[in-house]
């Protein structure tokens, strides 16, 4: 393990992990009820503006397509640094999220800003490759200058009941990441049940992930508020056990401000306001940012602007 690894990133041993997984009990209706009750929070005026600015600062602006080019990445990276050039009050996005081959392009543009470059790896989105390949994939992204790595869990192993393999793979990848932030994607749309989501969350956290992330955005069923709630409770349990404070990234299908604010409410009430920073909560999104920028303008000027007033990303 890298000598730079801090306590925060330390791996929790397998037997403690198994203890946590064995105790996973979730009532599905209870999760749904709590989620829909939190969705009735009425976020207005100052708290809305504050929330929207937080969302911008938590955005991992993402493009993960075969058609991505250096030009496209340059555009998006530039937007991440200055999402709304007409309003200095609007913060920069947290990161741009790209494929490994485009990391250096992004890094060259955001180098002098606060914007981080995140790269997916480990044979995103399926993860159907041997660990050796995943390590090469990840090492390449790191060498290209990635600040953060988004990997996928081995769902094949998970569904075959080989939890240990899921854990071991993440441990190996975290080892080469060292201090580089590791976000582990559970693909909640495939895991389906809340118990699976919680078990996968605890495995990923124990194995040293800095973040757990809902989805790849590559299957039809992306993030859900219920999944976010379950993951938040896993993060809370992990922190309460003295194992460290970890983050959550929700991604896949979050397109408007209203929805995004509801995610903030879940984190705020289930984990606490300490988690409402880019260090511990992120949105993976492509179209969300524009809607948030429009809403911020609307709150400030009382008029709703067309998309062409905001730079393309």
């Amino acid at each position: 393990m890298s000598s730079k690894t801090s306590l925060k990133n330390s791996v929790i041993d397998w037997s403690s992990t198994i203890d946590m997984i064995d105790n996973v009990r979730i009532d599905e209706l209870g999760v749904k009820e709590r989620t829909s009750s939190l969705a009735t929070r009425s976020i207005k005026r100052d708290s809305k503006l504050e929330g929207l600015k937080k969302i911008v600062s938590m955005c991992d602006l993402t493009t993960l397509e075969g058609e991505d080019t250096e030009g496209k990445i340059a555009q998006m990276s530039s937007k991440a640094m200055t999402p709304d050039p007409s309003d200095a009050d609007v913060p920069n996005a947290a990161a741009v999220c790209v494929y490994p081959s485009l990391v250096s392009t992004a890094k060259n543009i955001v180098r002098d800003s606060n914007v981080k470059v995140a790269s997916v790896s480990s044979y995103f989105p399926s993860g159907q490759a041997p660990l050796e390949s995943k390590i090469v994939d990840t090492q390449f992204a790191i060498n290209e200058g990635a600040d953060e790595i988004d990997i996928v869990i081995n769902r094949k192993a998970f569904f075959e009941g080989d939890f240990r393999k899921v854990y071991d793979e993440i441990v190996s990848l975290k080892e080469i990441c060292g201090d580089i932030h590791l976000k582990t994607i559970l693909e909640v749309g495939e895991l389906e049940t809340y118990e699976n989501i919680k078990k996968a969350s605890l495995i990923a956290l124990s194995a040293g992930s800095d973040f757990i992330k809902t989805s790849t955005g590559k299957i039809s069923s992306g993030a859900s508020r219920e999944a976010c709630l379950v993951m938040a409770r896993a993060v809370r349990e992990f922190a309460d056990s003295g194992y460290g404070v970890k983050g959550i990234k929700v991604a896949g299908g979050i397109r408007d401000s209203k929805d995004a604010i509801r995610y903030l409410v879940i984190i705020n009430e289930e984990l606490g306001v300490e988690w409402l920073t880019p260090e511990y909560f992120r949105f993976g999104a492509s179209s969300l940012l524009d809607d948030v920028l429009k809403q911020i303008k609307k709150l400030k000027t009382n008029s709703y602007q067309s998309s062409y007033y905001f730079p393309r990303g």
């Binding site: 976020i43 207005k44 708290s47 600015k53 409402l276």
Partner: peptide, 10 residues
């Protein structure tokens, strides 16, 4: 930026 009190919504 580290607080998020809900504004009144009456």
């Amino acid at each position: 930026m580290n607080n998020w009190e809900y504004s009144e919504s009456i």
